[in-house]
Design a protein around this nucleic acid. Structure first.
Length: 582
RNA sequence: GCGCCCGUAGCUCAGUAGGACAGAGCGGCGGUUUCCUAAACCGCAGGUCGCAGGUUCGAGUCCUGCCGGGCGUACCA
């Protein structure tokens, strides 16, 4: 959808007539003054003085006199070293609101990704274990990036790369055999986890048991029937649980691809690497030396011949390339694996894959827990019982949301809405909390913080949306086809319009940085502006959306409708529901 | 030792390709509900932007060094 040139572009072109810079560069220099009284757009002239060899405030003054104001701009003022522009607010307001209402859910969309594919690897849990709170970041960041890139026109492929292969499954198999479990298919995930811990504990300091586990994994790799039977039973049970929990979070995938899928290819890959002289044997293990890249070697096989996860990532990456010829392949995986992904890219490069640099590790901070004794934060461990289940956290969030909703039950239309609404708000709080902070920061888990519904939270945004919906319901009239936008003259209304105008840029920024928190921050600010506007109408009936004057009311309703669209779209980009009432 | 991430108000965090006086939420104090949903709004208090240099007309933002925390660093993923 081609839109009219933005105000920045128009101003950039006008300024370029008088300056030795391109219209694009000048448009980029424009910023929004700290307060609306100063102007709507501002150009800092400091940087220009090195081209013009004049004092910045003189440049501002001279430009003010010279520049021919483009249509829609009504005044330019020199303010010290800044040249500030005042736009024709009704015209901009009309343009912004019309664009949003015409585009609907498409507002903020872009065609930059047309014809391009982005592969996103997220989720990626290990089977035979519950999904814990530490699985939250990858799942929701990945899902949000998926939606953000999709909005920009990319074809996205979400892949859940299941950890179903590796030495740890040797212990599980050995455990089933050792403890005489006859029907492994009847084990629950909890049973498997317990079995794993039991065996690991027992094997501690027992070389025979450790050896038995290694043997079991080797038997699995060799395709021995009993090992395969136990392992695949465990996988089935795990998959069911993953489906359910990811479903609660609103997370889904296009492909659920187990690591074991690459078992065959792995052999071929290793053979090929041997032929090409890329791998070396070292201390009985198989490695790809990466000294030239300043990295430790990438280890493919242990000295007992069992494969390592790095070995599985190579054929998986090649396979993804063959399937999709991706523009980018994102791996939404924690900080702690940053070395692994640098090795992966370097190894692929050595294998001659030019596309290796299209791989991007979208890292995120760890979820940590406060040690009750030392007071210090550190990564949780299953052994210390610090494994918090994703299910538990969501259950608690939904329960709290439910209580809150019951306090305001009169707002609901039907009893039946309660369960679903509680889920939308409770889960929304958890998802938003994760996505509201820049992804690389570590976070210390705290119940009250994770489940907060007030202040800078998901429910705050959802609440603003519900209020907007409520106004529209109460209006009880269809959206007027033609409204007089000049009636939106309140300062708070102008602030809102400027904010709505920024949404497309927020989406582009979030995509560029792979940073969903940019959307979350945007929404919080937008909703704060709306809440201020809304509350101003509490005291003064004239300032309400549903005011006396019919024409003003119609114009304000259009603004409300536009804001509702944007909040709804923003929440969708975060993978959150936008309930109509709460 | 080396690598990656982080270090902004008591706490949790924003700070847009270096630019107009460092912002928000929580917590604290004080207000707001005959009024479009108070999961809200308004006001007050609170900051040597880890430290020291450097680049620049200008640095929370860029460079170097150091300090503090986290996570990695060949047979886990």
């Amino acid at each position: 959808m081609s839109q009219m040139a933005s105000m920045e572009e128009l101003l950039g072109r006008a300024l370029a007539e008088h300056l030795p810079l391109s219209a694009e560069d000048l448009a980029g220099l424009l910023q929004t003054p700290p307060s609306p009284e100063l102007g709507d757009y501002g150009l800092p002239c400091y940087a220009l003085s090195k081209y013009l060899h004049k004092a910045p405030d003189r440049i501002a003054e001279e430009l003010r006199a010279e520049v021919e104001l483009p249509e829609g701009v009504c005044e330019a003022r020199a303010e010290g070293a800044y040249l500030n522009f005042f736009v024709d607010r009704p015209a901009v307001t009309e343009h912004v609101i019309r664009t949003i209402l015409a585009g609907g859910a498409d507002y903020g969309s872009d065609q930059q990704g047309a014809g391009k594919t982005i592969v996103i690897d997220y989720g990626s849990p290990n089977i035979a274990k519950h999904l814990g709170i530490h699985h939250l970041p990858s799942a929701v960041i990945g899902q949000s990036l998926y939606r953000i890139y999709e909005k920009l026109g990319y074809r996205c492929v979400g892949i859940n790369f299941l950890g179903d292969w590796g030495t740890s499954f040797g212990r599980l198999i050995a455990g089933v055999e050792r403890y005489g479990i006859e029907h492994p298919e009847r084990l629950s995930v909890a049973d498997m986890q317990e079995l794993y811990v039991r065996y690991s504990t027992e094997a501690d300091g027992e070389p025979e048991l450790q050896q038995a586990a290694r043997d079991a994994f080797r038997r699995l790799e060799e395709g021995e029937q009993q090992a395969v039977r136990i392992w695949s039973a465990c996988r089935e049970v795990s998959l069911e649980e993953f489906d359910r929990v990811y479903g609660r979070l609103g997370v889904s995938f296009d492909e659920v691809r187990p690591e074991s899928f690459y078992n065959e290819r792995l052999r071929e890959t290793v053979e090929r690497l041997r032929r090409d002289g890329i791998v070396q044997e070292s201390q009985g293990a198989l490695i790809i030396p990466l000294y030239e890249d300043g990295l430790p070697p990438c280890m493919l096989q242990k000295s007992d011949g069992a494969s390592l996860y790095a070995a599985r990532d190579l054929p998986a990456a090649e396979h993804r390339w063959e399937q999709y010829h991706f523009e980018k392949a994102l791996y939404v995986v924690g900080n702690e694996q940053s070395l692994h992904f640098r090795q992966l890219a370097a190894a692929l490069k050595q294998m001659g894959h030019e596309w290796a640099d299209r791989i991007k590790h979208v890292n995120f901070g760890l979820i940590k827990f406060r040690d009750p004794e030392t007071g210090r934060a550190r990564v949780g461990s299953t052994r210390r019982g610090e494994m918090l289940l994703l299910d538990e956290v969501l259950d608690e969030a939904v329960a709290r949301a439910r209580r809150k909703i019951e306090d305001n039950a009169e707002r609901l239309e039907a009893e039946a809405d309660l369960g679903e609404l509680a889920a939308q708000v409770g889960v929304g709080a958890v998802v938003f909390r994760q996505l509201s902070t820049r992804r690389t920061r570590d976070v210390v888990f705290e119940w009250d913080r994770m489940l907060d519904f007030e202040g800078d939270t998901g429910p705050y945004v959802q609440y603003a949306h519900a209020r907007l919906c409520s106004i529209l319901r109460k209006a009880g009239q269809p959206m007027a086809a033609d409204v007089d936008h000049s009636l939106l003259a309140l300062p708070e209304e102008w602030v809102l319009v400027r904010h709505l105008e920024r949404f497309p840029r927020a989406v582009l920024g979030a995509a560029q940085e792979c940073e969903p928190s940019a959307i979350a921050s945007y929404l919080l600010e937008l909703c704060a502006d709306f809440s201020t506007y809304y509350s101003a109408g509490m005291r003064e009936p004239d300032r309400r959306v549903l005011c006396e004057d019919a024409a003003t009311r119609a114009a304000r309703l259009a603004l409300v409708e536009a804001a509702r669209h944007v909040i709804r779209s923003g929440l969708a980009l975060l993978g959150m529901a936008a309930p109509d009432r709460m």
